[in-house]
Write a protein that binds this DNA or RNA. Structure first.
Length: 124
DNA sequence: GCATTGACGAAGG
DNA sequence: CCCTTCGCCAATG
């Protein structure tokens, strides 16, 4: 990465600084039509016990420069828990449908089939 | 500076 | 099988 890192918390802990950046990077690498979970990303970063931090990172992702396909990140149940953080409540599922991902009742259909594990795909 | 919360997840009752 | 609790770490009040 160059220098365009998380400009959301320049005065916060340096650790989180890197953490946010890593999360953004991984999320951007999610292939179209695929989805992943917060826990998977957390595991890939080595902080599997802190999946909540990934969620926090996504919150900052909303203000991140390169658009973050946060709609491809759902909870371990495949549920679109973060839909309320988008511009509109339907934005998330609309984007997913456009990616070819079926969404039913705020949940990704065939989630396990579309699941993209960074640890498995990117290697660890 | 302590208490609460949060886009999670696993475990226990 | 549904609901509650705990852990993790950072941000916010």
């Amino acid at each position: 990465m160059k220098k365009k890192v998380a400009e959301e918390n320049p005065k916060s802990t340096t650790k989180a600084y890197t953490f946010f950046n890593d999360v953004f990077d991984v999320v951007r690498q999610i292939p179209k039509g695929r989805v992943t979970s917060y826990g998977a990303i957390a595991t890939y970063l080595g902080t599997k016990l802190s999946a909540r931090m990934v969620g926090w990172a996504m919150n900052a992702a909303s203000t991140a420069k390169p658009k973050i396909p946060a709609q491809r990140v759902v909870n371990r149940n495949g549920m679109l828990t973060g839909k309320y953080h988008f511009k509109t409540f339907t934005q998330m599922e609309e984007l997913l449908k456009k990616d070819g991902v079926k969404v039913k009742n705020d949940t990704v259909v065939d989630f396990k089939d579309l699941f993209w594990d960074p640890v498995k795909e990117l290697g660890l």
